[in-house]
């Protein structure tokens, strides 16, 4: 049977609940908006039910751990083509086995979950490292990101712990939503017209007047701590793959 859902993590957990409740044999699970029906296959839509989702999550926490439940959520954000089915397979293995199989690295499904989680973790870490805020006139620290996976929901805590006393906005220009902190709470936001938010480097007219100065100071710091006698571009690229250079104001050539 082919099942579709609303594309949220709760939706996917609701699917798991429904499969166990109705004892369905599943052949495929896809978010509704990715499903392309054809002549042979019929899909059934499963309604999201937060109470069901909660019970499945509790089940995962009980059978494995809170950490694994979080891992599954993080993997869900990876946007891998078969992620719904992979997560389902993992949860099924976990529920059907008498013991906790979440550290059975000899099993392909389990191992893949851990590998995807590692990739997500790495991307989150890179966002923690490579985000560069620019201070705007209205005193908001602003940064644009385009992460490899949909990791924005995993970022607020880190920045909140660090910057509780300044307003900041992180905007994913590819997925076209952001998270804004107004000194009280963080909110996920979208803009009808986000054309101006697509620019990584904000126009000087909206920046705080000290902003360009600090970017130049940072760039000159970056240039002077390099030791030319030890130049090692291979290692450099290993640490900062080229696709991340766009984030780093210190790598910009023009000022």
């Amino acid at each position: 049977m082919i099942l579709t859902y609303d594309g949220t993590f709760s939706g996917l957990l609701s699917v798991v609940f429904e499969v166990y409740r109705l004892k369905i044999t599943v052949s495929k699970i896809v978010p509704e908006d990715e499903w392309q029906s054809n002549f042979f296959d019929q899909a059934t839509y499963v309604e999201t039910d937060s109470a069901w989702a909660d019970r499945v999550r509790k089940g995962i926490e009980k059978k494995a751990s809170k950490k694994i439940a979080n891992t599954l959520y993080q993997c869900f954000l990876s946007e891998q083509a078969d992620i719904s089915m992979l997560l389902f397979n993992f949860i099924q293995k976990l529920f059907d086995s008498p013991s906790d199989i979440s550290d059975n690295y000899g099993d392909d499904t389990v191992l893949r979950i851990h590998q995807i989680k590692k990739k997500i973790g790495r991307e989150v870490h890179r966002m923690h490292a490579f985000v560069r805020f620019q201070r705007t006139k209205d005193d908001i620290y602003y940064a644009v990101i385009e992460p490899d996976f949909n990791v924005l929901p995993l970022l607020p805590k880190h920045f909140l712990d660090r910057y509780p006393a300044q307003k900041w906005l992180l905007y994913d220009s590819q997925r076209r939503y952001g998270v804004y902190y107004d000194l009280h709470k963080t909110t996920f936001i979208t803009f009808e017209d986000d054309e101006r938010l697509q620019y990584r480097q904000l126009n000087e007219s909206v920046l705080d007047q000290s902003e360009p100065e600090y970017q130049i100071l940072w760039k000159s710091y970056f240039d002077s701590v390099n030791i030319p006698e030890r130049r090692n571009m291979k290692l450099h690229l290993q640490h900062v793959p080229k696709r991340y250079w766009k984030y780093l104001s210190e790598k910009r050539q023009q000022f």
């Binding site: 712990d161 910057y163 509780p164 006393a165 390099n226 030791i227 130049r231 571009m233 450099h236 900062v240």
Partner: peptide, 26 residues
């Protein structure tokens, strides 16, 4: 740990914010 009106924290894992061309962390 940070305080409610403070700036920054330094808990646990370090972060390398950039890398120089000699491959060292900044």
């Amino acid at each position: 740990k940070n305080t409610k009106d403070g700036l920054g924290n330094s808990s646990g894992m370090g972060i390398c914010h950039s890398y120089t061309e000699d491959g060292r962390c900044v």
